[in-house]
Every structure is written in C-alpha cells, then in structure tokens.
C-alpha cells in the first residue's frame, strides 16, 4: 500500500530561524498518525506547510488517493482543502462565532453547494438548489449526532462550552469530506471525560470514514491510546518514528522530553512518566511568530 501522505525533506526557514529541518515521514489511509514533540519542535509549522498557510522553503508534500495525486507545496491554501481534500482544525479554535452551529457545518460544504446553486445564478431563482441543501443538512445532522449537538444546532457557535466547540470544529472539518484530517492539539484544554469522548470520536472517524488522521498532541494519554504511528520532532528535526511502543522506548525521545543530563539508566520509569508529562517549556516559539 502506498502512503496517503508522504512528506519528503520538508524544511521551513523564517529568516535565519530554521523551524523545520529536513523532516520526512509518511501517513497512511485509515490510520491515526500523531506528531509529538516539545514546544517549539515545529509541529504546527508542519501543519501550516501541509495546509498551505506557509510555503515550505524546501521539500515535497505528496498526497495520493485512488489514483489521484497532489503536490501540496505547490497549491494555495484553499485549493489544498478544496481539491486535495485536506481538512484541519486549529490550536486556538476558529469557528464562525456569530453563526449557528448548523451554519458552521453548512459553510463547510460551500464548494459542493456552490456547484449545486449554479454558482449563485440558478440558486437565486431557487432552481435545483433545495435538494442539495437538504443533503447538506442531512450530512450536518449526521455529524451533529456524532458529536451530540443536535439540540444546539440553532445556537450561536460562540455560546457552546469549550469542549463542544472543539468537537464542532472537528465535525466542521469532516463536513468538507476530507481524505486527510489534520488536528492541531484537539485535546488541549479538555477534561478527562471530554478527552475520552474525543478519543472515541477520532477512532470512530478512522473506522467509519476510513480516512487518514494526522494529529498534533501534547496529551500522551490520547496519543498513546489511539495512535497507530507516532512521529517525534525536536528542534525542527525528526528524532523518532514508529508505533507507540517503539517510540515510548526510544532513548532519543526520552532525552528530548527530559533533557540531555538525565541518567540514561532510567528509561523504564521515565517512559512510564511520559504519560503524565506535558512538554518542557522553552522560550521562543517559532510556531507563533509575532
């Protein structure tokens, strides 16, 4: 099986700062691939390159499914979402706050509906558009049921609690019917119960939709439980790549999380601790230039 996404020699520089340095990895269909690493490791930058918000300095981002292929590094951001089918969520939630939950999900089906409305011309006269809108509402309802927000469909998105907003953002990305879904810290700020619900949602998406999921996460309980494949970045370089078990025991990973000076004899204990440890704080985060 060829990989759904293969990233080759991705490098991203901001002026003199090298945010990502020659990173290569791949992600498969119907699998959850997690990218982990301490703050400032370049995880979000990888996402921003994949989804077209940044143009990579060097590298090839190859997406392939069903005989079609796309080179993401050559495409504009909205085309990556529209033509290649890469959906994403954001670290700090980006819903349309003053629009309702349902409208958020309908806007996500924009391109499909645009075609159905004859690029507005036919839609103005109500020709053949109703059916497409019913279908769009049905798809939205399907996802609202998945995330348990059917009752709040007509409320403004900003009125939802934080955890619901996170799940709504995932549902909205799914309404674009992507082949690869990129999730930027979906569990950030969730309590354990919400976090467990998120795990179920992600596993369900993997099982039912059979799409690839790419995930940035700090919460090791999420990462270790649901990932099929983990990539570890540190200081913009890939330091480990493999299944959860392999990564958990990789000395390079332990060093990255706990620092060089740690005694090499302690991997067992340390590996257990990894579940609890959030990333080591570091100054100067190149993912958020200001």
């Amino acid at each position: 099986m060829t990989a759904l996404l293969s990233v080759e020699h991705l490098t991203m520089r901001f002026g003199g700062l090298v945010a990502i340095d020659d990173v290569s990895f791949s992600a498969n269909d119907a699998e959850i691939t997690a990218i982990i690493g301490p703050n400032g490791a370049g995880k979000t930058t990888v996402f921003n390159c994949l989804t077209g918000f940044y143009k990579p300095t060097v590298g090839r981002l190859h997406l392939a499914k069903g005989g079609e292929e796309w080179l993401l590094e050559r495409m504009e951001g909205f085309r990556i979402a529209r033509d290649a089918g890469v959906g994403r969520t954001f670290q700090n939630i980006r819903l349309f706050p003053k629009m309702t939950v349902l409208e958020n999900l309908i806007v996500a089906q924009h391109n499909k509906l645009m075609r159905a409305s004859g690029y507005t011309v036919r839609g103005l006269f109500g020709l053949g558009y109703k059916k497409a809108e019913y279908d769009a509402v049905d798809l939205a309802r399907y996802w609202l049921e998945k995330i348990g927000l059917v009752d709040r469909a007509d409320d403004d998105a900003e009125s939802l609690p934080y955890g619901d907003q996170r799940r709504l953002e995932i549902a909205r990305a799914m309404c674009t019917e992507p082949i690869l879904l990129c999730l930027d810290e979906p569990a950030a700020g969730l309590n354990p119960r919400e976090s467990a619900a998120l795990n179920d949602l992600l596993l369900d998406i993997k099982k039912e939709q059979k799409i690839g999921l790419l995930l940035i996460e700090h919460d090791m309980s999420v990462v270790m439980r649901i990932s099929d494949h983990i990539i570890v970045l540190d200081h913009g370089k890939k330091i480990s790549d493999g299944d959860p078990e392999a990564v958990r025991n990789d000395p390079a990973v332990i060093r990255a999380y706990l620092g060089e000076e740690e005694d090499e004899d302690l991997p067992e204990i340390v590996a257990q601790d990894l579940g609890e440890i959030d990333a080591r704080p570091k100054g100067g985060d190149p993912e958020r230039p200001s």
Binding site: A81, L95, V107
Partner: peptide, 18 residues
C-alpha cells in the same frame, strides 16, 4: 453564507476550501 463566514474568520474559511 461564505461572505458572513469570511467576515467572521478568513483563515477558517481557507481551511474549508473557500
């Protein structure tokens, strides 16, 4: 709807293929 969505958040719109 896309106009209103753009008014609310342009970056999110791009991620939805608008």
């Amino acid at each position: 709807r896309a106009w209103e969505a753009l008014r609310e958040d342009e970056i999110a719109c791009r991620s939805l293929g608008i």
